[in-house]
Design a protein around this nucleic acid. Sequence first.
RNA 1: GGUCUCGUGGCCGAGCGGCUAGGCACCGGUCUGCAAAACCGUAUACUCCGGUUCGAAUCCGGACGAGACCUCCA
Length: 487
Amino acid sequence: MKSDHQLVIYNSLSGKKEKFVPLHEDHVGMYVCGPTLYSEPHMGNMRTFINFDFIYRCLLYLGYKVKYVRNITDAGHIINSAGQEVDSIGSAARTAQVQSLEIVYTYNVKFQELQRIYNLLPPSIEPTATAHIQEQIEVIEQIIENGFAYVVNGSVYFDVKTYMQQHNYGALSGRKVDELEQETRTLNAQDEKRFFADFALWKKANPEDMQVWRSPWGNGNPGWHIECTAMSTKYLGKQFDIHGGGLDLKFPHHEDEIAQNCGSFGCNPARYWMHANMLNVNGKKMSKSLGNYFLPKEIVEGTSTLFTKAYPAAVVRFFMLQAHYRSTLDITEEALNASEKGFERLMEGLSLLEKLTPSSTSSVEVAKVLSPAEAAICDDFNAPILIASLFDAVKYIHALNEGKEHLTQEDLLWFTQAMTTLVQAVLGIEPSKKEENQRLSGVMDMVITLRQQAREQKDWTTSDMIRDGLAKAGIQIKDNKEGTSWS
RNA sequence: GGUCUCGUGGCCGAGCGGCUAGGCACCGGUCUGCAAAACCGUAUACUCCGGUUCGAAUCCGGACGAGACCUCCA
């Protein structure tokens, strides 16, 4: 561990912040539930992935060797409590009149592109459900062997009642099964299940199914929850350090994952469960069903009807990291604009830092400037506090620039590297790339020279005409001490 | 209906027993031919009502309001 600070993580399992102690020193196994590729992930989905990307980056920064597994759901049948079968990928395929794999492949390509645009580090492994059918079958067999599942008419169900005799179903979500029964509004029409809370591990094939796999129980499809158990076990072991996902997956998905893992291997898969909170639009969760969503690409391209302009992906990412991952975040144009200005201030501070000249002595300890940033990272990955500390550092950079503070060459180098690491490697914010337009910049050089000549002759009419004309064309003139620049 | 979470200044959003969060906007200043930009600085807050405490935005109880989950969802 590089840091002097002790990392604490809020564990959803206990509802408390806990000291983070990995199972294997310096190594961290982390599993995060990825997207279901029946449509293009929306901005809310992206917030979760951005948050866990930040967490991954923090762990790397702290010196851990991280194995980060994020699955891709490209198969799976869900039986909801009303007994209806949901096969989102299959129905998307039927609607588009293509094969399931085509749907999955199309959206996976888009998802990979989004990861690039939003600067998400690629996980160590991105396994797909369809490539792990055999592993899923093996886990189900183990659960049956342990007596926590039963076979009915070609389908396999998890036996919650039997499981409860030895384990705590509801350990994560805090739900109590007898309460659940009363809570369930619609009466369960699924007569195959012995108990209303039982869930499918394997579902017998329907005639309309486009994808079907062979199993000891006949042709069918895996249940929704089992893929995560199979893949996390295969790549991270029966128990690993961190399991993450969106808050909306806490129940039933993660609760059922715990049941499956305990039912097959006798242990909770993860020691630390982390849940990222939702992205809100006008105070309501962004979701497909509410229709209040927009796509991550639309905001970057300026084609979303919610906003009047386009925002660079780095700005959107920065905006998201200005809220803690456990809080909901309301996205509005006003808030986004505020972040954009702040983002630019931070970036300008960074580029100013590289132009500073060293001094023979240092007036401030660099470690003291950087310490709050590390403390923020270690306090349950507190990105907003980290960013606040970076803004404090920007103030310090300006003080250095104005000669109010000074640093030796050695300290300046240290400070510069640390700041760059925190912004680029940890926050995952790349400096905005200025679009190099050779022809335009040539023209602009000339225009600025002309305006400068007019100003020297105190010909304010001409110089203001140039300034206003450029403003109309969307180009802003900035007069600094060193001269005139534009953007 | 059940379970849970949250209500912070104009906006977004940290903090979670005593110490300026931060960003944006506002206002004042420096700079400027005037502006803009940039930089510096000040101010504004903790839904309400009780309680615990020397001290509460922070803990406890209640009211009101909002949201999430209990159906698929990141």
